[in-house]
């Protein structure tokens, strides 16, 4: 079980958090302008890579804030956490 350093609350048990999938997928501003394929790309396509991955997490049983995490999925090492809207740290 991870120890996650919530950018708002500090280090907490993983059981307080909820994972929210891949980060930095922006909802299209004009969905109606998109073709089915382009919309499907936003809606369904996620990378789920082995290695360093950018993810969304929510401190659901704490401050309820969403934030981003850089995690190496091959060894579960958390490389960084940062607030929504902040630039991701370089790999």
């Amino acid at each position: 079980m991870f120890l996650i350093n919530c950018p708002f609350c500090g280090e907490r048990e993983q059981s307080e958090f909820k994972a929210g999938g891949e980060a930095h997928i922006v909802r299209p501003k004009q969905p109606t302008e998109l073709s089915d394929d382009e919309w499907a790309e936003y809606l369904f396509m996620r990378k789920n890579i082995k290695g360093v991955q950018f993810e969304r997490w929510n401190h659901i049983h704490g401050c309820r804030k969403w934030f981003n995490m850089v995690r190496d999925t091959s060894n579960d090492q958390i490389k960084a956490v940062y607030k929504m809207g902040e630039k991701p740290p370089v790999k």
Binding site: G20, N58, I60, W66, G85
Partner: peptide
């Protein structure tokens, strides 16, 4: 509530 919070915090801050 979680879904609404998600959109508010991440898509429409």
């Amino acid at each position: 509530l979680g879904k609404l919070e998600d959109y508010l915090q991440t898509e429409w801050p």
